[in-house]
Structures are given as structure tokens and as C-alpha cells.
Simulated scan of single mutants.
Amino acid sequence: MLYVAIVLSLVLLQYSYFSFVVGAARGKYSVSAPAVSGHRYFERAYRIQQNTLEQLIIVVPSMFLFASYVHPMTAAILGLVFFISRFIYFTAYMKDPKSRGMGFVLGFLASHVMLLGGLGGAVWRLF
């Protein structure tokens, strides 16, 4: 579980970084709160942050489920795939939102392997 805790900490720090990028873009492009539109680069940073938040709701508990009922090291590796995929998503989305697909799909697959694996592992233990 040590590796799971480390990877999960990295994922949460990454989200904090994305939040910082939004704040910096808000200042740089003069987008006053509570507005969430105004400049394309601010809007892209904001959408990256929001999409990452939406994904965290799935990936955080899924990583713990998978680690508990299947294998902790594999959960950490899948969590690391998610972490890397979010940087791919971030870089692609900031350049051109239409190119974000690969980063999104990699993260989605990693989180859902953990979710379904955790569910399967828990059900397996019933028998």
C-alpha cells in the first residue's frame, strides 16, 4: 500500500498544479472570478482542471479497491498510468482541445481497469 499512497499523493499534487495553472491563467488573461470564460487558454486550463476533478472521483476509490482486493503494486502502476495520462491530456488540450483523446482514453482505461478489477476482486472474495 506504500506505493499506492505515493502514487495517489502524486495524482493529488498534479491536480493542485492544474488548479494553480487555472489561477495563473485567470490573472494573466484578466478573467475575473467567478467567470469561467473569457480567454481560450484560460478556458482550456479550466476544463483540464474540471475534467481531472471529475476523473478523481473514480480513480481515487478505484485505486484503493484494486489495491485491497487484487494487488497493491499493480494498483500503483495503473495509478501511475493515470498520472502520466493526465499530463498527456494537459499538454494536448492546451495545444489543441481536439487532440486530447489519447490522454483521456489512457486515463479512463487505467481507472476503469482498477474499478472493475476492484469490484471483481471483492465479489471473488464472497465465494
Rank of each mutant, 00 (worst) to 15 (best):
A33H: 10
Q14C: 03
T74C: 06
G121E: 08
H71T: 09
F83H: 09
Q49P: 11
A33K: 05
I88K: 13
G101L: 10
A35G: 04
P61F: 01
F20M: 13
L56D: 07
S68N: 12
V4Y: 00
S62F: 07
G120N: 05
F20Y: 15
G118R: 10
G27M: 10
V31H: 06
F64V: 08
S37G: 12
S99M: 13
H39V: 01
L56Q: 13
M73H: 10
A25Q: 08
F104Y: 14
A33C: 01
L12C: 13
R86V: 04
G121A: 06
A110D: 11
R47P: 03
R100W: 02
S37T: 14
V36I: 08
M63N: 07
G118T: 09
E43A: 08
P61I: 08
F83I: 09
M94D: 03
G38R: 01
S85G: 08
G117Q: 03
M94N: 03
H39K: 00
K98P: 00
Q50S: 13
V4L: 12
A76M: 05
F18I: 08
S68K: 13
G101Q: 10
S32N: 12
M102L: 15
G103R: 10
Y15M: 14
R44F: 02
M63H: 03
L119Y: 05
I88T: 12
V7R: 06
Y17M: 12
S68F: 08
G103D: 11
R44D: 00
L8Y: 00
